[in-house]
Design a protein around this nucleic acid. Sequence first.
DNA 1: CCAGGGGCGTTTTTT
DNA 2: ACGCCCCTGG
Length: 824
Amino acid sequence: MSTLHEPAPETEGTAPMIVHDAPGSGHGERERPKPSGRLTDGLNPPQKAAVEYRGPALLIVAGAGSGKTRVLTHRIAGLIETREAWPSQILAITFTNKAAAEMRERVAALLGQASDGMWISTFHSACVRILRREAQKMGLPATFTIYDSADSRTVIKRIIKARDADTLGFTPGGVSSRISKLKNELTDDEAFARNANMGDPKEVEFLAIYRDYTRILRAAGAMDFDDLIAETVYLFRAFPDVAALYRRRFRHVLVDEYQDTNHAQYALIREFTEPVTAELSAQMQRDGLHVERLLDSTGGIPGASLTVVGDSDQSIYAFRGADIRNITEFERDFPGASVVLLEQNYRSTQNILSAANSVISNNFDRKAKNLFTTVGDGEKIVGYTGYSGHDEAQFVADEIETLHRAGMAYRDIAVFYRVNSQTRPLEEIFVRSALPYRVVGGTKFYERAEIKDAMAYLIAVANPIDELALRRILNTPKRGIGPATETALQSFAETNEISFREAMRSAGALGLGPKVTTAILALAAVLDESAAKVDPENPAGVTSVSDLLTFLVTESGLHETLRTSRDPQDETRAENVEELVAQTKDFDRENPGATLVDFLTQVSLVAAADELDDSSGTVSLMTLHTAKGLEYDAVFLTGIEEELLPHKMSTNEPGGLAEERRLFYVGITRAKKRLHLSLAMTRSQFGDTSVAMPSRYLQEIPAELIDWRQSPGMANSRGGTQPRALNARRDGRSLGPGIGGGFRDAPTPGLKPKTEWPNRITAEVRDNGDLELVAGDRIRHANFGDGRVTQVTGEGSKRVAHVQFDAAGPKKLLIKIAPIEKIA
DNA sequence: CCAGGGGCGTTTTTT
DNA sequence: ACGCCCCTGG
């Protein structure tokens, strides 16, 4: 187990010359092979410089849309093509799996060969890969479970309850975010104990909770998201010989989205790029590893070459520990570093860029950077103020239909918002308008209860000591094992110093009722049988993930219970379980030889953006955070209101307003051709409706760039006469003199201030049953008034009426639920 | 042990 | 408005 971190055998012994010249280091301008013109043609000078740079550290400051992925992929391809590096010597870290997949594809396309051997993955995937290999050293099972935030919360909730810590004001949310922050700072429970103020009872209690949490995860053989990074750092620090193996292997480390790295990730990068001492190099050589070609004059292996790409203007993850100093102080951290600035934008029109530049320039403390393009001004930005979230959504839907009729594909259109709850009105209107859409992220498939249940069965098989998983499935489906029984099992396990799972096997010794005992033993038997199926030692061979899951959901009764339940919602749940089985089938097919643990890992580490399917013919809905790194022909930024963007939670946090502004900036710069900004005058939350004000950021965009279809200055929430200045606040005070001019000045030819809302859109939904409509029918719509049906498409419950409304124009309506009736 | 009702907190963003 | 949690009565 000690020396298996070899690059693929065929690369051994023929490792290419590593050229590692820091600028000015003396032995520089030897005839180093340059990447062929093929890889630099068509690049602008700074891009070319970034591709061709050779040295210890390179920072690519890449403005939005400046072609950083292109630079990164060409840089990697160049290193391979010139034989300066083997694929196995490349480690590239991206933010999402999707970005990793894209990079892998593009590198492979450039090289005309597969990128096998390279590690191109997210921080978390790379760490899991390392940790599973080295698990034994860390005293962990190689099959350790990865706990998501919900799992952590469950554990913390139990700890708080067991300790009665809520009386001291501890909440699961508060504790989990604090623990997460500490782990991101590489402060584990013991480090925290050393610095904690033990005079403060709350601190003492928090430490106790942190310790319990650490202990419980350890005992369950589980890691949370933050552990994945931190434990890898600890692994490298505790085992220099292990670190040396990875440092020897990865000669080129490239990190994307560097502005969003937190301290632990920064420390990890440092670990990867440290040199290997002469001593350890000699040790590896004695172990039969080839190191000769890597050695420098000191007899050690120099640190890997590091390339980071980032843009501090797009730093939007401070809330989860991202430290912008990682990028701003890069040159100090890595002496000898070079910096390349990419400012030419290849994505957006000048109007969009001008708006973006103008907004972001309000953040002081930033390095000047000005995006420019040569593609011309393009269309103006379109603005719209709706009466309500539904009205805003209707605008978005109508505008999308207009774009679509003009030839834009749905998949090239995206709608962004600040918080997930904004999807509700959007979805309601989109469904009614028969607009094909997809919500990216949000409530994920894998977060559904029935899916987590089914997954817990798989986890219980893969990692039998995971008590959380076991307790989840203990009484799911209902088999009469209640909390009392659960506690009995747990204390039996504790007194006999056996695992929960073993306690289940010995259920007969607990003196429980016969029914309960039988139920526990039956479940234990199903799990044991399953474990045998995936035991690599099993002479009959290993069962595929899909067959295993089918066995589990069948034998446990989970599927059957849902299928035959009286609760109508359980029908969907049963279908979801079936969908999961289908997904495991896909997984088995696409990953021959992959194990159950591989499947569980993959599921644990999917990011919202990974779900995006470029070939889908649908409009994409997502949060501004998820949108980072993506681009669309047409972008709709919704809810550009005070308290939403900037979000009210951010306003009190230091740097919060600047971060929210960056979020707006990220949103704007996703748009290639068309940008729409919309807001509503009233916004519903928690059931009641309140007045919303235009976002302060709106006035940071020069007025001449925006074509207001309906400006905030033209209307107010009551349809009354009070003008709404942009810089008005709810309390009536102005945001200050000299900024903005309100929208009263905005040129909006042909539009008069609005006092009525003929198209006030409601959330009204109707069940029309099987209302029959044919072309020519006159109908009346609750919001749009009267109109004439021009066409009916689709079938059954998905029939869509195309209606020409007398006042509101053309719309598509889902007949089954639209608030319509047939007239004369 | 379980189903159903009432009460309450929730929503910032996510690997 | 919704979902979760706790409590009560079967």
